[in-house]
Nucleic acid binder design. Structure first.
Lengths: 203, 203
DNA sequence: GTCTATAAACAGATAGAC
DNA sequence: GTCTATCTGTTTATAGAC
């Protein structure tokens, strides 16, 4: 495989990711991806055979950008409050860099849930670790009792949803693009603040 | 317009909504909608001219199912804590009845943000009302100070996101369908509980 | 108002030259 | 490895009979 091959292949994948994440699988056109990559449509098929296989390549890449990081933080041996802060920070920053990823991933998964299992073997998160940590800290009076499922869902919801609902939020709250970016930046501290307040026992 | 006309038109809209919400605009096929409605494909065009216009009819209907209710609660003259409880309850219940609506609406809006403005004139929520209520209650020491934008975003995020991420959450937390329904039911009280804890001043 | 048949445009995929 | 040209199946939309 020559250098040029590698570059073309990489260029295609980059353009494919761009188009797929914006338009979705059904809305994306091979022609548009080729145009964006500055090459011919036939080359896409030369490198990736079918639209499906090209999509799978993109999707696998995206899944591995989104999930492993958060899973590793969730399972790391640090206090719950620190996990909340760390996840808010890294997740929001990642989505700031890739604002279209969230809606894309969840749309495609809901269109075909099998994609999740087929493209993401490392889904092997041991949620029991989180459960026991949270009940342990609750037993010690460090945090208020709460089901791990709800706490984690609350956390991820508040981080991810604003990117999914961006146009609605902007419209509803009268924000321009700059105000929205500022709003997102604020959430890095607002989310931990909110959750930690809700978890702190009365003194 | 005869009774039969009205019924056919309504049947088409019902099937269109079903197919569009599951597959999205790009993934939906006029043939599939016709099959679901038990009629011929040509009839779709007789009643709605184009796929686009049929979609607009569906989308307008869905937007008016999703937004007006929450907006009216947001603007109603009740205390913040009551608003939080009422919105959690009604929104989660509505999404339980229509679990595919959330991902559908946000996907289509993000594909084409113009759809939001064009199909939803009543978007005229006066967010200033919420802002002033929240700063008023904060000034009176009823709640802890927080920007209205963040509080409302937190609330809606926690209500809506679980439906968008359903397959991921089920996989991650090892829930079957029944457990997930139970989980959703619990959120009707978990969300208000979480937010109210975070908003209650120290005593 | 409802159907069958078909037009017209499109999109994914391949053949074959260079 | 990259291109042009083309095939094949699909999909929206319309024509026209009943």
């Amino acid at each position: 495989m020559t250098d040029s091959d590698k570059n073309t292949e990489k260029t295609i994948l980059l353009s494919a990711r761009k188009i797929f994440t914006i338009k979705g699988f059904d809305g994306a056109r091979m022609q548009e991806i080729a145009d964006d990559a500055g090459i011919n449509k036939a080359l896409l098929h030369y490198y990736y055979r079918t639209k499906d296989k090209l999509f799978e390549a993109v999707f696998k890449e995206v899944l591995n950008l989104i999930f492993p990081k958060i899973i590793s933080i969730l399972q790391s041996p640090i206090p719950v409050f620190e996990k909340i802060e760390k996840i808010s920070l890294t997740y929001i920053e990642m989505l700031k860099q890739n604002p279209d990823l969230a809606i894309f991933v969840f749309h495609e998964i809901s269109r075909n849930p099998r994609r999740l299992v087929e493209n993401f073997r490392n889904a092997g998160i041991d949620f029991e670790i989180i459960r026991s940590q949270i009940s342990l800290e609750a037993a010690r009076g460090i945090i208020v009792p709460i089901k791990a499922e709800h706490l984690i869902t609350n956390l991820i919801s508040m981080c991810v949803f604003p990117f999914i609902a961006k146009p609605v939020l902007k419209g509803m709250m009268g924000m321009d693009e700059e105000a929205f970016q500022q709003f997102i930046e604020e959430r890095k501290s607002v989310i931990p603040h909110t959750l930690i307040l809700s978890l702190t026992p009365d003194k």
